[in-house]
Computed example of a mutant assay.
Amino acid sequence: MTIDLTSATPAPATAPARANDPRQAALLAVFGMVVLSFIDGFVPVIARDVGLWQFHATRSAMVLACLLPAAVVLGWRVRPVSIGAVAVRSCLVAGSMLLYFAAVAVLPLAQVAAGLLTAPIFVLLISWGFFGAQIGPWRVLAVILGFGGVLLVLRPGGEGVSVLTFVPVGAGALYATAAVATRQYCASESEVTLVAGFFGAIGLCGVAGLAVLSGSDSPPAIDGFFASGWQPWTGPALFWTAAQALVSMIGIGALFRAYLLAEASHVAVFEYTFLIAAGVWGYVLWGQVPDALAVLGMVAIMAAGVVIIKRSGAA
């Protein structure tokens, strides 16, 4: 999954004029979030047979094999304006998604989504701490509300809590750092460049992970999704990895189109559909039912994110 949460910081004043269709943009954003959350729900199926690194290396190869020829045919610009900035941004997003998918394999999907969607909170804190952004009382309260929601979802000190429980929040923090880097250093890059850079980076991470774990021939059921080396492909694992590649491109494409049709602050609010859809798919696919406190925490995280995004142009 890839979600554009960069809208938590103000857009550049020189942004080009775009078509304005907020209703279609909202529908596209909701569609993108629903299909992305659906396909992410099948990561546990993949994790039964192959490891995290094999999954990412193969999925990235599939995506790039489709994206790069399409870019040549359609004339999309892939070459970065700043190779260094795109490389750093791509590594940050790749790190975030490695943590996200590692968590999705073993934790309830809604819980992982809640952790990832803390990104706007971290964007605000990074923008304030490192770039002197003025945040004002409303967004301070939103940060407090959001972290209160995280505590309700994760419940540190409760039964069944481990280091892995906090991995989704780490994914959100890394994604937030990438979001700030995108705004500050990659504003001139095309969306195709950023997508290709991300899949290239996470694909290389997959290859590197497989190289390090080349001596491990135990399946994920024994070594775990994160520590498993190359495994023989099974039909279900290969099918759902290919489905991940295809559906991810469709979902991300819908989201990118939404950002072309309406203001970023309008579209970003609908990205929180991902958290709602993740809860629904988690129940439909796996019977995962968050308790009342977890639901309250997710609502708090969504409310905090919406406040931060909608007030991103005010102090």
Score class of each variant (00 low, 15 high):
E191C: 03
L124S: 03
F101R: 01
A237N: 03
D4E: 15
A314H: 12
A264L: 05
I308M: 06
L293F: 08
V81W: 12
C66M: 14
A258Q: 00
V50P: 04
A87D: 10
L174D: 02
A292V: 13
Q111M: 11
V207I: 10
D223W: 00
A119S: 03
H56C: 05
F42M: 03
V35G: 13
G200F: 09
T118D: 00
I202T: 07
T58C: 09
Q134M: 12
A171F: 03
G215A: 08
A227L: 06
V195Y: 11
R77W: 11
P108S: 05
V106R: 10
A171E: 01
E263F: 07
A258G: 02
L92R: 07
K310H: 07
L68F: 08
P108Q: 06
A171I: 05
A102N: 02
P16I: 14
A171Q: 03
V123C: 13
V212S: 07
A292Q: 11
I308Q: 08
G158Q: 10
V195K: 10
F42Y: 10
G282Q: 02
M33C: 15
T165K: 01
S127T: 10
A110Q: 05
F166P: 01
L261T: 04
A173V: 12
V72E: 10
V195W: 11
L204T: 06
A119W: 00
L174E: 02
L124M: 11
P12R: 15
F147W: 13
D223R: 01
A102V: 01
Q231M: 07
G129A: 10
S37R: 04
T193Y: 09
A29L: 14
L107D: 04
V289T: 13
Y175H: 14
G279I: 02
A102L: 02
W128F: 12
D217V: 05
L98C: 05
F101A: 02
I301W: 03
L213G: 01
Q288P: 05
V30C: 13
G84D: 12
S60H: 09
A94F: 05
T182H: 13
P236A: 02
